[in-house]
């Protein structure tokens, strides 16, 4: 089972990712395959659009995987169905996921697990955590023990963000 960081601890990941193609293919019996009933499944927007009812009938939890070009607002009304949202970072330098995370947390009020996956390195963790991610599927070559220190790269930030909803200048004033 893959390892991930959740709430700054190393845990094993119980979620299973589904590639849409297999689950949309019509078999010899003329039917699409049944989903595992109890497993926690991470699906794509396409699978969600095409097999929504089947997915909702199951007892297992649902997660939705977003790509950087997906508009999180398109799922705003349906976030209650998902216990997990995963945002993919396809490249080290692709920062769209940071904005998507803030939108999900701050604008659409998403409270469940928000996972960064893809090219997630320890050097991203402080910013990702600030933007509202709370679980991190590190890329393969990262040592999770060492990566944990990435959360502590900085002890403060000037800006308002999910982890610090008030900017430093307002917090300074209160102190």
């Amino acid at each position: 089972m893959a390892v991930l960081l959740r709430n700054r601890r190393i845990v094993s990941d119980g979620w299973q990712s589904l590639e849409p193609r297999r689950w949309l293919q019509v078999g010899e019996d003329g039917l699409v395959p049944d989903f595992p009933a109890a497993a926690d499944l991470i699906i794509t927007p396409r699978l969600w659009a095409l097999r929504r009812e089947d997915l909702l009938e199951r007892s297992g939890r649902l997660g939705l995987r977003l790509e950087p070009e997906d508009d999180p607002g398109a799922f705003a009304a349906e976030l209650g169905h998902f216990a997990l949202l995963a945002v993919n970072f396809p490249k080290f330098g692709d920062g769209r996921g940071f904005s998507i995370a803030r939108l999900l947390r701050e604008r659409y009020g998403y409270q469940g697990e928000l996972r960064a996956l893809g090219q997630v390195t320890r050097d991203h963790l402080f910013f990702m955590d600030s933007c509202g991610f709370d679980s991190f599927a590190l890329r393969e070559c990262e040592d999770p023990e060492e990566a944990l220190s990435g959360f502590g790269d900085f002890s403060e930030a000037y800006q308002a963000c999910v982890a610090r909803p008030q900017p430093l200048f307002r917090r300074r004033l209160r102190a």
Binding site: G95, R102, F126, F127, A157, Y158, Q159, C161
Partner: peptide
């Protein structure tokens, strides 16, 4: 400058 320094959302533009 302070706002633009180490901005969590906008460091990978």
């Amino acid at each position: 400058r302070q706002w633009a320094t180490l901005h969590p959302e906008f460091s990978y533009l």
